[in-house]
């Protein structure tokens, strides 16, 4: 089937199997490998993209349902309005191996659009579908959660905690 959609602001027309995964369309046909596959079954969140502004898992979105839709991937989001946020995210220790990070950046950015000052609990709920195996999520909370809450900055001797 032929599907016309908008990816990162660019109009794209594709022929493909109606059940082709949006993830594969992005990675293999549109050369956008920033969107990662971590599980292929909607459990890890590494493949999150925005579909008409809402975070979804691209491994579970068939091409069939992409017609006329607007897709934004991490490449465009991080180099667009989210750049400053992404820099803060790196500085706070939100990134280690980076394999979960694109999905977390996409989802976190969607959260911040709706709630610029989320609590730790709100961050945890929004990111519950994004597994991270490196950070213990603590660096991610530091980057995202309201600063008046005690998301723990590591303490060292001579610092008050």
């Amino acid at each position: 089937m032929r599907v016309e959609l908008t990816v990162n602001g660019r109009a794209v027309a594709l022929d493909g199997h109606p059940m082709e995964r949006l993830l594969d369309v992005l990675r293999e046909r549109l050369s956008l490998p920033g969107t990662k596959e971590g599980c292929g079954e909607g459990e890890c969140g590494a493949c999150a993209v925005l579909l008409d502004g809402e975070p979804v898992l691209s491994c579970l979105v068939p091409l069939l349902q992409c017609g006329g839709r607007r897709i934004d991937t991490v490449e465009a989001i991080a180099h667009g309005p989210a750049r400053g946020f992404v820099e803060d995210f790196v500085a706070a220790g939100g990134v280690q191996c980076g394999a979960c990070t694109p999905g977390i950046v996409v989802t976190a950015w969607a959260l911040l659009q709706r709630n610029p000052s989320p609590t730790r609990e709100q961050v945890a709920e929004a990111l519950a579908g994004n597994l991270c195996r490196c950070t213990g999520y603590e660096g991610i909370f530091r980057a995202l959660a309201r600063k008046d809450e005690d998301s723990h900055a590591p303490s060292r001797p001579g610092e008050t905690s």
């Binding site: 971590g38 599980c39 079954e41 459990e43 890890c44 730790r120 961050v123 945890a124 709920e125 990111l127 519950a128 579908g129 994004n130 597994l131 991270c132 195996r133 213990g136 999520y137 603590e138 991610i140 909370f141 005690d150 998301s151 723990h152 590591p154 303490s155 060292r156 001797p157 905690s161």
Partner: peptide, 20 residues
Amino acid sequence: RLATYIIPTAQDSPRIAVHL
């Protein structure tokens, strides 16, 4: 599968205070 081999999510994560 990650649906059945379960690792902690952000909502399973406690506050982790590290003191170096």
